[in-house]
Amino acid sequence: MNPTTGWLVAGVSLLNILACVWLIWATSRRKPNEVAEGAVKEDVWDGDLRELNNPLPRWWLNLFIITIVFAIGYMVVFPGFGHMAGVLDWSKRGEMESKLAQLTERREAKLNELAAFPVAEIASHPDARKVGQELFGSYCAGCHGANAEGARGYPNLTDDDWLYGGTPQAVVASITNGRGGVMTPFLSQLSNEQVSQLIALVADWPEGEPSGRQAEGMAVFRQRCAACHGMDGHGNQALGAPDLTDDTWLYGGDPDTIRETILFGRQGKMPSHKALLSEQEIKLLAGYVIGLGQ
């Protein structure tokens, strides 16, 4: 608030208080032509209603006076009188900032203490896991689910199956820098026949040597898909290409979903959390996530 507005506000506030004082004084004063206290007044209302001349009860009047005194005291102590800060120098922002500093300090002390453990130990340390779980709830649960079991397109973090690896370094890197697996679309590159052969293979990956349609699928796979998913379909953690031989699916293992994946490609994206989380927080989260898989 600039001083001019401040003085205007202060002036109006002061006038308002003075007006209240005057009002109480003026109305509680006896007037010259008034009937005696407790006597019946002259006016008649609605034919037969009459009014006694009684003053306001004393306690009621006192309440008015107390509110006026309170208002003056409040304006002296708190920032209420125009742009004056008040003798306490209190402000909502200041209160918030000091509380925030206090909470952050306490939190940092705790984080420093807990994040001093190696990630592998955090994974099984109850206190550290608790902090990790809280962080997970506010930063990760929206995508990976409150209990980290994932959803379509969002990996389950509770199993021991990793797109990018489950080592402390890999998980810390996933959280810090984010991840973006890119599977290119094959819509214009494969014939319908080839796509069906691939679906036959991928939907039910054979244990030993493939035969029949699956063998045809395998031939196409080795040519077109193995660069990313590996010759034997076990995936590649450097690219985030999933293992196609197991029963864990990121998008789905039914023929329709696999067809969609092959034709249109996939671009799962995990955002970077570098700007949102401190190094210690990321470490605690990594420990928590790794602990889930154990």
Partner: peptide, 19 residues
């Protein structure tokens, strides 16, 4: 906080990502 794809999934059907 989230990427565009997440928002799309979530707005189409919130329970697809947040059961």
């Amino acid at each position: 906080r989230y990427n565009d794809e997440w928002h799309e999934l979530h707005l189409m059907d919130p329970r697809a990502v947040v059961p």
